[in-house]
């Protein structure tokens, strides 16, 4: 009986200490997969930022980007805008998934996406468009 109690106490202590560690820790965002996605998005940002400035592309409520007003895109760029937006959204979706998987909780991807959605908008420059429940809003 006493022995059983000791074993169970040790088990409980282990469970408690491990849960404390994981609750206090930051999310790890330094995996190679995340770094690769980040670099790709950083490189694409130079192409996207004029479209954010003109209002052609806006930030969606689900943490992605979308073409808001194709007529704001210069004619020469109009053909490429959809693939640019698709590539960005592919990277963003992969980023949310990789952060969740890299931290051992694939089921967190949705919550990570909504966290990002809010932070992209908060950090957006004034004049950029973002989407809320009522539609597009100019920041």
């Amino acid at each position: 009986m006493k022995k059983l109690f000791t074993v169970l106490s040790l088990l409980a202590a282990t469970l408690f200490s491990s849960s404390w560690v994981s609750a206090a820790a930051d999310l790890d965002v330094n995996t190679p997969a995340i770094a690769a996605i980040k670099n790709s998005m950083q490189a694409r940002h130079n192409q996207l930022s004029p479209h954010y400035n003109s209002g052609a592309v806006g930030l969606t409520a689900d943490g992605l980007v979308a073409v808001r007003d194709a007529t704001a895109v210069p004619l020469k760029d109009r053909g490429g805008i959809n693939s640019l937006v698709a590539a960005e959204n592919g990277d963003r979706t992969a980023l949310y998934k990789e952060i969740a998987v890299g931290n051992g909780h694939p089921e967190w991807a949705g919550e990570i996406r909504s966290t990002f959605a809010g932070r992209w908008v908060d950090k957006a420059q004034s004049g950029w468009y973002y989407q809320n429940a009522g539609g597009w809003v100019k920041k």
Binding site: S19, A25, V29, L95, I99, I112, F116, R119, K123
Partner: peptide, 18 residues
């Protein structure tokens, strides 16, 4: 405790990446 989504840590991570 273990499966609870760490909202503050996620915000910090998002800020860093953005």
């Amino acid at each position: 405790i273990n499966i609870y989504f760490p909202a503050a840590a996620a915000e910090k991570a998002a800020d860093k990446i953005i």
